[in-house]
Design a binder for these strands. Sequence first.
DNA 1: TTGAAAGCGCTAACAA
DNA 2: TTGTTAGCGCTTTCAA
Lengths: 334, 334
Amino acid sequence: MTTIKHIAQQAGVSVTTVSRALNGYSDVNVKTREKIKNIAKELNYSPNSLARSLVKNQSETIGLLVSGFTKESVKDGFTVEVMSGINNFLSETEYDLILFNTDSSKQRKKTYTQLCKERRVDGVILQGIKRDDPYLQEVLDSDFPCVFIDIPVSSDHVGYVSTNNMEGAKKAAAHLLENGHKEVAMINGHEQAFVSRERLEGYKSALKEFGLPFKEQLVEDGGFMEEEAYQKTLSLLRKNKSIDGLFCASDLMAIGAMRAAKELNIKIPEELSIIGYDDIPLAKYVSPSLTTISQDKYELGFQSARMLVSMLREKTAPEQSILETKLIKRESTK
Amino acid sequence: MTTIKHIAQQAGVSVTTVSRALNGYSDVNVKTREKIKNIAKELNYSPNSLARSLVKNQSETIGLLVSGFTKESVKDGFTVEVMSGINNFLSETEYDLILFNTDSSKQRKKTYTQLCKERRVDGVILQGIKRDDPYLQEVLDSDFPCVFIDIPVSSDHVGYVSTNNMEGAKKAAAHLLENGHKEVAMINGHEQAFVSRERLEGYKSALKEFGLPFKEQLVEDGGFMEEEAYQKTLSLLRKNKSIDGLFCASDLMAIGAMRAAKELNIKIPEELSIIGYDDIPLAKYVSPSLTTISQDKYELGFQSARMLVSMLREKTAPEQSILETKLIKRESTK
DNA sequence: TTGAAAGCGCTAACAA
DNA sequence: TTGTTAGCGCTTTCAA
């Protein structure tokens, strides 16, 4: 493999000059530069980014820590769309993405920060980490430039991008209440998700606005999983015959809920309106198609990458960015 | 940031000894090792993988070149599932994944091989590259250990994993023909996809087996896109009223085709049977649910990672691995 | 405009 | 069992 040493030899100059010529420094003779560039091309030279990173002490890589990249959770295209946004922004920069799998056994031995430190990534994007994740604090304690997705935590080196979950959930519940539903239940995600807390607040807030009491027994956690939501909905509907509206904190769970309703011969939306959250690709295609709160997953990724790169390049302070949601009316609600 | 130098100082030994102790070499005194390990922990030491890679001339990273990681193509979860398989295998190894975006403008300046060479990746997995991609040859000409997904090309440093597209397509067409369909059309992908050729062959082969002639005018390319398939199906059905079966080379296209049929008030499957290819998550949920040929996308990724790692670690020869497909009977075919 | 020299953090002969 | 030395490929002072 060709190195600048080889080029220097061929060109009869020092490695310093080669380095300068190839990196576009101005203080090098035009002819020398041309000569060097030609030789480099001839020799099919590729700079060794490892060597460069080592001396410059920056790797031009960004670490991506995602959970939810498992076989099962591929279905709700959430993580992918986020990644697609990140990827698209980064593709216009000098940074490459290095993917760390947080579900691996490797991860259990090496903490997130260890992984990042070893690879000397310049910054990190985190998505899908739970509130009780033991390593979350570690990341905060480190001094890695970080952007969290959907984790409203920040410090001098940590920013986040999220959507307005509280408003979104409120919109969802309000949509049902506006249309005359009186007994609106909720299938939430799980205790350890930041967004779940916020969405619960939104739901409560809507109830309050419509002068309805919050009833504990109408809220269940579905763990963001279709099957679990199906089970919970089943028991919810069996126990509370008067439920006429159901807000699910994810589309996948809403799909599970729809299945439960069908099984109980409850007509959607005539007897029960169901509204989801996320607007995943599936939502449009299920039958009846799913009314939902759309969040811009691509933008979530795109913005987090943008923020991180800005922190790295322009030394800007981390921000707290909140994206808005949108109600998408389809067939599953009256 | 702590280095082995610091540790060496603290421990009163040479850096060599530290290196050996930390890397688990046997020729180091137990007490010295313990001492060094303790100091390392105390100082919160993290090895610098860049330095190590530089000297060892291997980076323990695998490059992933995917196309189809754009905002639009997220819908058919194909790429994601493949990535999930790759990721899952690699998470049990020492390798990390570095993601190169092939749709970027950066890519136009730097070829795939350049990206890989600069980052000194140990091997590469390629997916979604077209036959006419100018860089494909370059990869072949290089000496990077490579595994292609769905590109049946191999050499002494290139293996591939694919599914039996010919058989799969044949199964699809045969499924329609067996059930009495006489005029079976096909919406294929595009000219530049390896799999499209093979699937066309499978389709022809089934026709032949059932003693039916191949009719050029019954085959159109839908570019693997829902919208395009919708358009093509529309014109196909308008021109050929006798079509009673349709084989689409991807589920997404089949979904587009279903929409076209609905628009023309053609009943599925009573008047027209439609069969897809891939078995993406959507397939089960559309209405009527889509009969399709399932390919194991996760396995595609998993196996390619497995092969590559085996090539890297055990210096095994690249293989040609072909996975089988499975007919999934649902409601869209009689 | 160019080069010599030092060094980024690590590994690996080789010698002791 | 340990240390000395050289070197991976590059950038960056500093001096010429």
